[in-house]
Computed example of a mutant assay.
Amino acid sequence: MRPDSDLLWNALKGIVCVYKPAESSVRNLRKTLIWNICKDLSDLDVKLRYPERKLSLHDGSVKELATKEISTILTQNEITDLSVHPNVVGPKYLQDELAVSWSNYLGWNTSGVLIFGLKKGTMAAKFIRENRPTRAYRIKGVFGLATDTGFKDGKVVERSTWKYIRQSHIDRLLSSMQAAHQKKMFESCGVNIQSQLAYDLAVKGPIRPINSKIPIIYGLKCVEYDAPNFVLEVQCINENEQYLTTLIHEIGLKLHSTAHCTAVKCIRHSCFTLDHALLPKHWNLENIVKNLEISTRLLRENEHLTNQDSITLR
């Protein structure tokens, strides 16, 4: 039994998790996702309304057909109802009718997990965005070169030595930077770090800053070092692409060298990971419906994503 396009259209509401490639904008990916959904739905609707049928042509010559009555020709040949032909009525599902909004915005050079809300799911995407869950990134950097943009596509403005840098130096620096951010986490909430309240909050776990414009790093470690290349894993909140590339530059300066960023990948957005993300080649109606079901189950298991009632992160 073929699925009904109207039933699928009504079922397209919720959160869909996709993979964003680097050097692509979120707006263009949104348009591509909408276009793929509407195209698949329209093609399915055409197959249901206008099935392919073979016409039985008249055996006579063209001259004989011209002398026959039109009514006779119509009765002798099987014809289709052109009133429902796709070239006459056009596509049933239009791109402007499908509401889609993103929950997390990734920059041009950032790849990884991207969350979209479809139709009624746009409200869930809005709640996730306003509740500001933590995100995890894998950031690649290179010591020895500094660029004017902080990224690999920028103009090289400085060169420096890096051969004396060891992973132990990086780990020590990252530990001190993480401690400084944890202190700033309490200060941004107006809590004295030496008070009992700060202790009670620390027991519950990391806390969310009041100001949504202040980036806070909750975890920072070097997961790979092959000099001069290195890879950092960052767990943070309120960040953006520019902040993460600046972080690589800052690490290079504090190690008495220079560094620039070569790649940024979002590997987790709250409970959504790369395992849940659909690659662009899989953006078809069938996979999107399956992904909606998985995302709905994740939201049901993690209700705090859309209904946050505590300043602690969960």
Rank of each mutant, 00 (worst) to 15 (best):
C38A: 04
L74T: 02
S61K: 09
K63P: 03
V46E: 03
I70K: 10
K63G: 04
L82W: 13
G90C: 13
L41C: 02
S42P: 01
A99E: 09
D96E: 13
T67Y: 02
I70H: 04
N36D: 01
A99Q: 07
D96I: 05
E97Y: 10
H85Q: 11
L33S: 03
L41F: 09
N28M: 00
K47E: 08
T67R: 12
P86H: 01
A99I: 02
S25T: 13
A66C: 12
L29A: 04
L44R: 00
L29G: 08
V84G: 01
I73W: 01
I70N: 10
D81C: 08
K39C: 04
K31E: 13
D59E: 09
C38M: 04
V88W: 00
L82I: 14
T67L: 10
L48N: 13
S24T: 06
P86Y: 02
K39R: 15
V46Y: 09
R27F: 11
P51L: 01
L98W: 05
S24P: 07
N28F: 00
S42V: 04
P51D: 06
T75N: 13
S71V: 14
V84A: 06
Y50S: 08
N28P: 02
H85F: 13
I37C: 05
R30N: 10
R27S: 15
K47W: 04
E97S: 14
V46G: 00
P86T: 00
I37P: 01
H58V: 01
K54N: 06
H58M: 01
W35G: 05
S83P: 06
V62T: 06
L98R: 02
V46D: 08
K31N: 15
V62M: 08
Y50F: 14
S25K: 09
K31V: 10
Y93A: 04
T75Y: 08
E64D: 12
T75E: 13
K39Q: 11
N28L: 08
K31G: 07
H58Y: 11
P86K: 03
R49D: 11
K92L: 03
D40G: 10
